[in-house]
């Protein structure tokens, strides 16, 4: 996947936030990554070291919070967890196309000083 460009964007956002807060270093980034976001956390960690180099975020730590995927079943009016895109409700066995969670690819917070 395109983990390098995704991580470059995360570091860009973190560095921008640190600069506008008058900080001199980014110490840590916290990301939120959905189970069905299409990126591989290990590849993101690997890319992170590369894209941090020569930026204010050099040496920063990376924390990745994974978000399990969940679909909405309109029949049962309830969410159910799903492991992939084959979203069959475990209660009524209807197929749901409404993914409520699991596609997240976000920067949650940044620690700086």
């Amino acid at each position: 996947m395109h983990e390098v460009s995704v991580m470059a964007e995360a570091v860009r956002l973190a560095v921008d936030a640190a600069k506008s807060s008058g900080a001199s270093r980014v110490l840590a980034l916290r990301l939120r990554v959905g189970a069905l976001s299409g990126v591989v956390p290990d590849a993101m960690r690997f890319a992170f070291d590369v894209v941090c180099r020569d930026t204010m975020a050099a040496g920063a730590s990376l924390e990745i919070e994974s978000v399990p995927a969940a679909c909405w079943c309109a029949t049962c009016r309830a969410e159910f967890e799903c492991a992939d895109f084959f979203n069959e409700c475990p209660r009524c066995h209807n197929v749901s196309g409404e993914l409520r969670r699991g596609r997240e690819l976000e920067i949650a917070s940044v620690e700086m000083n």
Binding site: V6, E9, A10, L13, L27, E106, I107, N113
Partner: peptide, 14 residues
Amino acid sequence: SHGSKTLNLNLSLM
């Protein structure tokens, strides 16, 4: 320990 702070961003990387 001194002077570090955390800022919540909650921004999509896309």
